[in-house]
Amino acid sequence: PAHPYDRLKTTSTDPVSDIDVTRREAYLSSEEFKEKFGMTKEAFYKLPKWKQNKFKMAVQLF
Rank of each mutant, 00 (worst) to 15 (best):
P4F: 03
F44L: 01
G38I: 02
E25T: 05
M57W: 12
Q52E: 01
L8C: 14
K41M: 09
Q60C: 15
R24A: 04
A58K: 13
F33K: 00
F33S: 00
K46Y: 06
V59F: 10
T40Y: 06
Q52T: 00
F44D: 00
S12Y: 07
V59C: 08
E32V: 11
S12P: 05
T40N: 10
Y27H: 09
A58P: 01
V59Y: 08
R23M: 10
L8D: 11
S30F: 12
T40D: 13
Y27A: 02
K9W: 10
H3G: 04
L47P: 00
F62D: 14
G38E: 12
A58G: 08
D14E: 06
D6V: 00
K36I: 15
E31S: 11
N53I: 14
D20V: 03
V16L: 11
A58R: 13
K51D: 10
F37L: 09
T11H: 07
E31C: 09
K36P: 00
T13G: 06
H3F: 15
P48R: 04
Q60H: 15
D20A: 04
S12W: 04
K56F: 07
F55Y: 14
K9C: 15
L61Y: 03
M39W: 03
S12Q: 06
V16N: 08
F55P: 01
K36H: 13
K54Q: 14
F33W: 01
A58S: 11
M57I: 13
E25W: 02
D14Q: 03
A43P: 01
K56T: 01
D20W: 01
S17Y: 13
F44Q: 00
Q52Y: 01
I19R: 02
S29A: 10
K41C: 05
H3W: 15
P48K: 05
A26V: 11
D18T: 06
T10E: 08
S12F: 04
Q52W: 01
Q60W: 07
F44W: 07
V59P: 05
F37I: 05
D20G: 08
D18Q: 04
T11N: 14
W50G: 04
K34M: 15
K9G: 11
K54D: 09
P1V: 14
S30N: 15
F62I: 13
V21N: 05
K9T: 14
T10K: 02
E42T: 10
A26Y: 13
K51Q: 12
R24W: 09
P4R: 05
K49R: 13
L8Q: 06
E35P: 01
I19E: 05
S12I: 04
L28Y: 03
T22G: 04
S29V: 08
D6M: 00
W50I: 04
A2C: 15
I19K: 02
T13L: 14
K56Q: 02
L28K: 03
K51G: 00
R24S: 06
T13A: 08
F44M: 04
K46E: 11
D18V: 05
V16W: 05
L28P: 04
K41V: 03
L28T: 01
L8H: 09
K41S: 10
S17M: 13
H3E: 06
E31L: 12
E31A: 11
T10H: 06
E35A: 09
M57C: 14
E32A: 04
D18A: 06
D20M: 03
E25A: 02
D20P: 01
S30I: 14
K41P: 07
E25V: 08
R23D: 05
V21P: 10
A26K: 10
P4T: 12
L47E: 05
V21M: 09
I19Q: 01
I19A: 09
E42A: 10
Y45S: 09
P15T: 03
V21A: 10
K36C: 14
E25F: 09
L47Y: 09
G38R: 12
T40L: 08
A26I: 10
K49P: 03
K9H: 10
A43R: 10
T11P: 06
A26E: 12
M39K: 00
A2K: 15
D18N: 13
Q52D: 01
I19G: 04
T13S: 09
P1Y: 13
A26L: 10
Y27C: 07
K49C: 13
S30G: 12
K9Y: 11
F55Q: 06
F62M: 13
D20Y: 01
R23V: 04
W50P: 03
E31M: 09
K54E: 14
K56D: 02
E32S: 08
E42L: 11
E35M: 11
Q60Y: 15
P4N: 07
P48T: 05
K49Q: 10
E25S: 04
Q52S: 01
P1G: 13
K41R: 10
K36D: 03
G38K: 11
K9A: 07
S30Y: 13
E31Y: 09
A2L: 15
N53E: 07
Y5D: 07
T13E: 14
F37W: 03
A43N: 12
T11A: 03
F55R: 08
L61S: 02
L28N: 03
K36Q: 12
M57P: 01
D6E: 05
K34Y: 13
I19M: 00
E42P: 10
Y45L: 04
L28S: 02
S17G: 11
R24M: 09
P15I: 07
K46S: 13
K46M: 14
V59L: 15
S17E: 12
E42K: 10
T22S: 13
W50M: 05
K9P: 07
L61V: 11
P15K: 04
P4L: 03
Q60D: 15
D6I: 00
S12M: 06
R7H: 10
K34W: 15
M57A: 07
S30T: 15
T10L: 12
F62V: 10
K54T: 09
S30H: 13
P15D: 01
K36T: 15
L47D: 00
E32T: 04
E35K: 06
V59A: 09
A58E: 14
S29P: 02
T13K: 07
L47V: 01
K41F: 08
F33A: 01
A43Q: 14
F44N: 00
E31D: 10
K49V: 13
Q52I: 02
L8S: 02
R7M: 09
T10S: 04
Q52N: 00
R23P: 05
Q52L: 01
S17W: 13
T40I: 05
F37C: 12
K56Y: 02
L61H: 03
P48G: 00
T11K: 01
D14Y: 11
T40F: 03
T13V: 09
P48S: 02
S30V: 14
E25Q: 01
L28E: 02
F62A: 12
I19D: 05
P4S: 11
I19C: 09
